[in-house]
Design a protein around this nucleic acid. Structure first.
Length: 290
DNA sequence: AGTTGTGTTGAAGA
DNA sequence: ATCTTCAACACAAC
């Protein structure tokens, strides 16, 4: 991928992981020459605003890119860390010229000009995304994310069974909400939450405190299974991105229940139902999930 | 043409 | 603490 799109829709953990892998291929080792934006709101979480962000980031070198939950972490020289969240509609592109990206995507509001003439462009239709930089090491973020402004718990692929179990037993809510709560487990969004609960055979409105150890084991295993499968399929949509629903993404085609209201359950043939939980659409099979 | 749904997350109120 | 509602914002679909 000499130049192209790292775009996904509805970036949850697998999509962010896919982007991070692409970034490590394409921008690791490059220097950040400058940053441009026409939407300073992208930097509203940064103390000091865009001007301060720009002066802090200019001249640093990107040493590594990783991820915590849905947050992208750029480790740059000078022991600093850029934290980027794509929220709902954020997409990243690599292009060669400014004129190119403005033509390619009219929703690009922020861009990083890198050494070697590369441009990392941040497209964001709804402008919910955010970027900030901390003068901290990555290890400090991992140790105390909450204190540094990252309201997240353990990453969904790194969480230990015991951590998940105690978090769920402690919570007083239903399992679907708990899986979407980034402080309980970080990285799961609405699509994968439904896929995980279907795979685990758990009814989404079950109270977390009433789940048995075996049921939590099922949820734990299903989380790893679904997220790994989605990463293997490179998330819901990559460079072949077509529409707002990610309809041409490879995981989307492989999905089990999400957005399949009225279709047959892949296990038992019962029609998939849709309900609202906490204002979010929830798809499940009432036969297979108890 | 106005309303609703879409998805993430933080803030505010009950 | 947890709930709901609203807010950020834009657009497709009804």
């Amino acid at each position: 991928m000499a130049s192209g799109s790292l775009a996904v829709k509805m970036p949850e953990l697998p999509e962010v992981e896919t982007i991070v892998r692409g970034l490590n291929q394409e921008v690791r080792g490059r220097k950040i020459m400058d940053v441009w934006t026409d939407w300073p709101g992208h930097f509203s979480r940064h103390k000091g605003g865009f001007k301060h962000f720009r002066s802090t980031v200019r001249g640093t070198r990107i040493n590594d890119i990783s991820r915590i939950g849905k947050n992208i972490i750029f480790e740059v020289s000078g022991s600093k860390i850029i934290i980027m969240h794509l929220r709902m509609t954020g997409r990243l592109f690599l292009t060669l010229r400014k004129s190119h990206f403005l033509r390619a995507d009219s929703y690009i509001h922020t861009a990083f000009f890198l050494s070697g003439g590369r441009i990392l462009a941040f497209s964001d239709v709804r402008k919910f995304g955010d970027i900030f930089i901390l003068k901290r090491r990555k290890s400090e973020i991992l140790a105390a994310p909450q204190e540094l402004g990252l309201t997240i718990g353990p990453d969904a692929l790194r969480i230990k069974f015991n951590e998940l179990e105690s978090a769920l037993l402690y919570k007083k809510t239903v399992i679907k909400k708990a899986l979407l709560d980034q402080k309980v487990i970080a990285g799961i969004g609405n699509i994968y939450a439904d896929e995980i609960l279907f795979t685990a055979g758990i009814y989404p409105l079950r109270r977390t405190s009433e789940l048995s150890t075996d049921e939590i084991r099922s949820i734990f295993a299903a989380t790893r299974k679904i997220l790994r499968k989605a990463i293997k399929l490179k998330g819901t949509s990559m460079s072949d991105y077509r529409d707002i629903y990610g309809r041409f993404g490879r995981y989307y085609d492989a999905r089990l229940v999400y957005a399949r209201e009225g279709e047959r359950c892949p296990q038992c043939g019962t029609r998939i139902r849709r309900i609202k939980i906490g204002g979010r659409s929830t798809y499940f099979c009432e036969e297979c999930q108890n």
